[in-house]
């Protein structure tokens, strides 16, 4: 987090279009960015085209066909390339549909928390003084709350579902956005073009939305990628503990929870969804690292 506080801010003084063109240009140079983008785009397509790509109905149970091992085992078959679960549902199809859940939750959570955190952070950074004190207080309070524990307790109260998990995480994960938006805005507050806009009597929303926000967007995008990854991991955790997405939804965390009883004899039941989670989160983190390198030109490796 400390790296986030310091590094990406320097990059933010570029107008959006050169930033974009640099993104396109350096995607070819920056390996982690390229790999991250490639994997995420592929998984995005998988999520969108799930009904066409999945070989079976992910909810269709077949008790005669339970715990079929994946193709690389001797008894595996191409009918179920990744095998079936304890209820005879096709693992590959569930995995494919699970992409939708992870990506949806990741993106929506980042959107909600980004909105909350950025608003608070920009206001704190721009006005300073009491506003800053209040936001800092909220931030300290939020950081002191153990996320997993609070989310678990709340989800159990409200009844676990995809909507609950999304809302809860959205309301909980805004801290990094606020920290970064605050420090970036503080640095911008004294920038000449912001002072010029103030001197010209531009209305406050105009200054914040047109002068400040575009210039801290770069730093916020880096935070957003990290939060998408964080939200996906937390959703899986909540679902694994039984308080997140509920059965029969094919959440990857839930698949691991359901496979836990069988993992000693058939480890693939947890290896497969776990690897999927790992690859997705890894890709997002690589993208985030790549973006951070972009936004810190010629900068250090951090």
């Amino acid at each position: 987090m400390a790296q986030l506080l310091s590094s990406p801010v320097a990059a933010t003084h570029h107008p959006a279009n050169t930033w974009l063109s640099r993104l396109v240009h350096s995607t070819f140079k920056n390996r982690s960015l390229a790999i991250g983008l490639l994997i995420i785009t592929s998984l995005g397509i998988v999520a969108l085209l799930a009904p066409w790509l999945a070989p079976h109905d992910p909810y269709l149970q077949n008790t005669a066909n339970r715990m079929v091992p994946p193709i690389w085992h001797e008894t595996g078959s191409w009918t179920h390339p990744l095998g079936t679960d304890r209820l005879g549902r096709d693992y590959l199809s569930r995995l494919i549909y699970g992409t939708r859940i992870s990506l949806f939750i990741g993106l929506v959570v980042a959107l909600i928390s980004g909105l909350i955190g950025t608003t608070l952070g920009v206001l704190a950074g721009y006005f300073g003084g009491r506003v800053d004190a209040v936001v800092s207080y909220l931030l300290t309070t939020r950081l002191a709350m153990p996320v997993v524990l609070v989310a678990l307790a709340m989800a159990s109260l409200m009844g676990g579902s995809m909507l609950t998990v999304t809302l809860l995480l959205g309301l909980l994960l805004w801290d990094r956005f606020a920290v970064v938006a605050r420090s970036a805005t503080q640095q911008l507050r004294d920038a000449e073009y912001v002072q010029a806009a103030q001197a010209l009597g531009c209305p406050l929303p105009y200054i914040l939305l047109r002068e400040v926000l575009p210039n801290i967007a770069g730093a916020l995008i880096v935070v957003a990628t990290l939060e998408v990854a964080n939200a996906i991991l937390l959703e899986a955790t909540l679902s694994f503990l039984g308080m997140g997405v509920q059965p029969p939804s094919p959440s990857w965390g839930l698949m691991i929870a359901e496979g836990k009883a069988y993992m000693f004899f058939q480890p693939w039941v947890i290896t497969i969804p776990g690897s999927a989670l790992f690859v997705l989160v890894l890709a997002i983190n690589l993208l985030g690292d790549g973006l951070r390198d972009l936004s810190a030109p010629g900068g250090r490796n951090e």
């Binding site: 991991l233 899986a236 503990l241 947890i270 989670l277």
Partner: peptide, 30 residues
């Protein structure tokens, strides 16, 4: 800096952050 050990350390960092800890725990058990 830039040596294989640096790369390995960075790889550990990147993979560590991407690993769901409950899954990592289960894998350790197995």
């Amino acid at each position: 800096r830039g040596s294989w050990i640096d790369r390995a350390a960075m790889a550990i960092a990147v993979t560590g952050q991407a690993m769901p800890n409950f899954w990592f725990g289960l894998t350790l058990i197995i």
